[in-house]
């Protein structure tokens, strides 16, 4: 139930809040929930809605998605060392 509420808040934040608030909420949610795959979908949403080519030589449109993916993998290993107990 809490996870569903967080999903709704994250979805709305993409369109309502500044991007750095959305990114902070996404990264925070990755840390407190197990296997928060929705974060990848939300990052993809942000890139699809607002992105244009980041570099002049290569057309690359999914910077946020790649960043969140890397953080997701990083958090997997970090959670083995540090335990986050917000909802337990």
């Amino acid at each position: 139930m809490i996870r569903l509420l967080v999903d709704i808040i994250l979805f709305l934040s993409i369109f309502i809040f500044p991007w750095w608030i959305s990114l902070f909420l996404i990264l925070f949610s990755i840390l407190i929930f197990d296997n928060f795959y929705e974060s990848l979908i939300f990052a993809f949403f942000i890139d699809s809605a607002y992105s244009f080519s980041l570099f002049s030589n290569i057309n690359f449109f999914f910077g946020m998605s790649i960043f969140v993916s890397i953080f997701f993998v990083f958090s997997y290993y970090m959670k083995r060392i540090v335990e986050f107990n917000f909802f337990k």
Binding site: I14, W19, Y50, S51
Partner: peptide
């Protein structure tokens, strides 16, 4: 939608 919402200044 203005730049603070978009991380890409669009």
């Amino acid at each position: 939608s203005w730049p603070p919402s978009s991380p890409y200044d669009t």
